[in-house]
Amino acid sequence: MPKLLVPTRVLVTARIVLTVMGIVIIVDCVALMMVGKVNFGTVVPFAIGIIFVAHGLYWRHIREFIGRRRLYKRVWGALWGAFAVWLVSFGVFIGSLQQQIERSRQPLPDIAAVIVLGSGTVDGEPTPTLAKRLDAAAPVIKAQPDAIAITSGGVGFGRSRSEADIMATYLSEAHGIAFKRIIQEGLSTSTEENLSLSKPLLAAKGVCLSQPIAIVTSDFHTIRAASIARHQGYRQPITVASTTPLSIRYNAWFREYFAFVSSWLLGEY
């Protein structure tokens, strides 16, 4: 009896963990999709959440159904094998991200420009994540008075001011950086556009892409931002990492894995 009891307890625990994880993922993704964030980074985790919940609640039924069909059993095993491979790749991504974040916090050399990437606004104010980026950018801009400063972000749905304008206002009011010193790129709607639409602004000020250019973004976003920048011709992109608020930090890292894959599939780097 004890030998049978241990596997049963393990199975029950695994089913509870799968169900809870699935529900958390589903709720998180639904909340994000309700505010317009319908993309690879929310749809795929949403599907994974449903699979987790289904397996947690109906494990025995699934096993019985698949057990009677040899082909289904092979496919089911292959899918769980693929999930194991994904789990390893996710671990590698997190390890690489940690290394990139550490590099992003090293002292900066002399740079030609600072580009601050947008991350959303609410009621004319930066979101907590964007405020963190701007707070990280301010000392860099102050320490490098000859560097061009660009805030990058377009006009969101139902809004009248560009994100770039709100960002520039925040830097001026919260950190005392002269408003006229900040160049606004107010058309972009993605990281790829942030960087591509900033290039003509840099060129207009005589900054070449071969020069060191600081890209300020959230810590979880540094790998993708640097990869996209290099793909677009930035020869020396130097990421400056801002800390992601603890309330959304690990969720953001999880979603960034899928966004990183999505950017690769879309040929952004």
Rank of each mutant, 00 (worst) to 15 (best):
A164F: 07
V6Y: 12
P139D: 09
P200S: 02
S152T: 07
A168F: 06
L130M: 04
I16T: 12
C29Y: 05
G77A: 12
A174G: 00
S262E: 13
I166D: 03
S172C: 09
V12R: 13
S190R: 05
L195S: 04
S242F: 08
G206R: 06
M21D: 10
K3Q: 11
Y58H: 14
M1L: 11
A78V: 08
L171E: 06
D123N: 15
S160E: 15
W80Y: 13
Q232F: 05
G267Y: 04
V38T: 14
G186Y: 00
A203W: 01
R133D: 05
G91S: 07
M167D: 02
F40K: 03
G49D: 06
Q236M: 10
A252E: 01
C208W: 00
G156R: 12
A113E: 04
I141C: 10
A143V: 00
P200E: 03
K37N: 13
G233F: 07
L202T: 06
T42E: 08
S172T: 15
T121D: 01
P2R: 11
Q144A: 15
L32W: 02
P45V: 09
D123Q: 13
F220Q: 07
I213D: 06
A31H: 05
K73L: 11
Y234E: 03
A214F: 04
K180V: 01
T191C: 10
W253A: 09
R63C: 08
L187Y: 09
I166M: 02
G158A: 02
E256Q: 12
T222H: 02
R159L: 06
N251D: 05
N251Y: 08
G153A: 08
F157K: 14
V88T: 08
I23C: 12
A47R: 00
F260E: 01
I183F: 04
A138N: 08
A204H: 00
L201D: 04
E173H: 11
G22Y: 02
F254A: 15
L4A: 14
T222S: 14
A259W: 03
R235V: 10
R74E: 10
P2S: 13
H55T: 03
R74K: 14
E256A: 04
A131Y: 02
S104Q: 09
G81R: 09
S89C: 14
R230C: 01
Q184C: 10
N194V: 09
V35H: 10
D135M: 01
